[in-house]
Amino acid sequence: MAGKQALNIVKIKKMKQDANPITVITAYDYPSAKLAEEAGIDMILVGDSLGNVVLGYDSTVPVTLDDMVYHSRAVARGAEHTFIVTDLPFMTYHGSLDETFRNVRRLMQEGHAHAVKMEGGAEIAPTVHSIVQAGVPVLGHIGLTPQSVNQIGGYRIQGKDEKDARRLIEDAKALERAGVFAIVLELVTEEVSAAISAEISIPTIGIGAGRGCDGQVLVFHDVLKYTSDYREKRFVKTYANIGEQIRNGISEYVNEVKTRAFPAEVHVFAAEEGVIDQLYGKGKAESES
């Protein structure tokens, strides 16, 4: 987007104060990021959801740090004027601090991310604090945490009872104290998301978390129905059906090649007059036709 200036964490926090909703979308490659930036998105998340969406895995667990660095770097090339957050993938921030710092450094230096995202609440707050103290902006993520899907028993709505609601509120407060600049709330009941948003001073970014959050994030491919076997999700609104257009376009291409309608005369290039005669001898082309 011409003239656009990337956000920073100070501006992002001020957007909550100004009641200016924050728009976030995932992107995993150069063209997606470029289109998102041109559309005016506030922030791009290079999510480890790329495992499900573009790598064909059935969860985010198999995604590696190398995967995240590779895709983050591509996104950064496509969206030079947009704030980019990249996920630390499964088990890359649960070992020693030295190991965690090495992984964070790779996302920032090689992946060109402006911030990293970490899943978890109070249990990871000390690690978050250390990373923030080292000068790295951190985006928190609570509620449904896909990296822990095997432990929590599947993709379940969070915050449905009082005990779970209190846990989520305390997790959010712990992350705020640790220094995160914002928190993603995933598949959290609307009432609890609104309560969290009211009780903390930093922005909340919802995905399936209702209308009380300070911003929203959706997956690029969900917004555009950009897949072959799209599965409807209650918390998603699709704004275009790109998948169908792509499939129809490729199908038409296949048909035109099979029927020799493509390439047509407009798509071919002609040599200078007499080139074939010079190559093969005068009259060669006519005798073989």
Rank of each mutant, 00 (worst) to 15 (best):
R156D: 04
V138C: 06
S148R: 11
L168T: 03
G159K: 07
V138H: 07
G159F: 05
Q151R: 14
I169T: 11
Q158W: 09
H141S: 10
I157Q: 15
G143P: 10
N150D: 07
V138M: 00
G143K: 07
Q158G: 10
D164W: 08
H141M: 00
I142D: 13
I169M: 07
L144P: 07
T145C: 05
Y155G: 14
R167L: 09
D164Y: 06
I157V: 15
R156L: 11
D164M: 09
I157T: 15
R156S: 08
Q151S: 13
S148I: 10
H141C: 01
G143W: 04
L168G: 02
G140A: 02
L144W: 05
H141L: 05
A165S: 10
I152G: 11
Q147M: 11
L168I: 00
Q151I: 10
Y155N: 14
T145P: 03
I152Y: 01
P146Y: 04
P137L: 10
P137Y: 08
V149S: 04
Q158E: 08
L144S: 09
G154N: 05
N150C: 09
K160Y: 10
Q158M: 12
R166V: 06
L139W: 01
N150I: 05
E162H: 15
A165H: 08
R167Q: 09
K163E: 15
V138Q: 04
S148G: 01
E162Y: 15
Q158H: 13
G153I: 03
G143T: 11
I157L: 15
P137Q: 07
N150T: 04
I157N: 08
Q151N: 13
Q151C: 09
R156I: 07
T145S: 11
N150F: 13
Q147D: 00
L139C: 06
S148V: 08
G159L: 06
G153R: 08
G153L: 04
P146W: 10
P137G: 01
L144C: 09
E162F: 14
P146I: 06
I152M: 13
R166L: 12
K160D: 01
G140K: 01
P146H: 05
P146K: 03
Q151P: 01
L139K: 02
P137T: 06
V149H: 07
K160T: 09
D164Q: 15
H141Q: 02
G159Y: 11
K163R: 15
K160M: 04
G143S: 14
D161K: 12
Y155A: 07
A165I: 03
L168D: 09
L168F: 02
Q151G: 13
S148Q: 10
G153M: 12
N150M: 06
R156W: 03
R166W: 01
I169G: 11
Y155P: 12
G159W: 13
D161P: 03
G143Y: 05
S148M: 05
V149A: 13
G140V: 02
Q147T: 02
I142T: 12
N150K: 14
Q147C: 00
V149M: 08
Q151H: 11
G140S: 01
I152W: 12
Q151D: 13
Q147H: 12
S148T: 10
I142H: 14
G154Y: 03
S148A: 13
I169C: 11
Q151W: 10
I142S: 08
R167H: 14
E162V: 09
A165G: 05
K163L: 14
Q147I: 05
I152K: 12
G154F: 07
I157K: 15
P137F: 00
G140Y: 00
